[in-house]
Design a protein around this nucleic acid. Structure first.
Lengths: 182, 182
DNA sequence: GTCTATATTTTGATAGAC
DNA sequence: GTCTATCAAAATATAGAC
């Protein structure tokens, strides 16, 4: 089995259990590889696994969420394109955000740099589209932050209420919220 | 030491590490009690500790966030009062929300009922004020959900960006967001 | 590259002295 | 009510065969 096949399965475990709840045994079950085999791919154990998964996530963020924001369509269409991919990225709200999970507990100190970098990439990419749409930079930054806030908060509520309807509604009202007149 | 003194210290550990990251050793360090002493208070170990902490949190939610919503001041003042207490409740965004943390991993199945109940209490309490302010029930429910979404999302971003400014800004714009004309 | 076997540490939990 | 001592189970990690 190649590393490329293993990484998404590790990701799923981190997404379900968080960093500290994810154990090598759970990774072993998810990948169908024995524990020792996992150490062949990741000699530094769980921390290295999380680092690789985080890279994988950030690449997905770039390709699936940020790239659509840089097309040559009108701003509203670019935001709608990102939105559709956000829905898929988080499986209609049923999949937790690893950037959020890797900010908890001992993971916070370990991955804080890359998590912060990833969130800022997203916020900046979104703000840039809003500026192109004629919104002043300060407002654009705030609204971009608000968008990420709403997506993350909707994921929390989806888990807490065990119900994806809030997530879908939040996503739907996002483009209008972002591009409303100042 | 009384149970009432122990519980907030356990809470702090759960808030910092999440459910699976919180270990009996960490509880022991936080309370200055040996592991065996903790089992005297909580014979069923970590799960019982989390249950008691969750009760404590829900009581705090009722007294500090929901009670202000039922005063006889104008709706806008009641929401501002809750807002101020939200700021304190989460220590200006620096303290994680246990309702969110207890929705992760194996904690999800264990505490999902009470977490859902607590979130709905909050949403319903907020929606009731909005209805009193003349907002239609459906819109009121949506806006109340949106408020919790924004608070929870702001907490996520506060951790991820290591910066409380977004949390404070979100809180500030919350009353106006909730009571804006339909 | 994957495995079995094993070592080490941490965690969860209990018994019983004081 | 708090402790020491202890145990069993789980988690992390490594050595070495195939």
């Amino acid at each position: 089995m190649s590393k490329a096949e293993v990484v998404p399965k590790l990701m799923a475990v981190f997404q379900q259990y968080g960093y500290e709840g994810a154990s090598i045994t759970r990774f072993s079950e998810a990948t169908q590889l024995k524990r020792a085999s996992l150490y062949h791919y990741f000699p530094n154990g769980k921390e290295e696994m999380a680092t690789v998964v985080l890279d994988y996530i950030i690449q997905g963020l770039q390709e699936q969420l940020l790239a659509p924001l840089r097309s040559d369509s009108p701003p509203i269409d670019r935001i709608r394109a990102m939105n559709q991919n956000v829905d898929a990225f988080y499986q209609h709200g049923q999949q937790d955000c690893l950037l959020a999970l890797l900010s908890i507990g001992e993971a916070h100190a370990l991955f804080q740099g890359r998590v912060q970098q990833a969130l800022n990439l997203w916020i900046n990419g979104l703000a840039a589209v809003l500026v192109e749409a004629g919104i002043t930079p300060t407002t654009a930054r705030h609204r971009a932050e608000d968008a990420i806030v709403q997506i993350q908060g909707a994921l929390v509520l989806t888990r807490g209420l065990n119900n994806t309807t809030t997530f879908e509604r939040i996503l739907q009202q996002l483009p209008e919220m972002l591009l409303r007149p100042e």
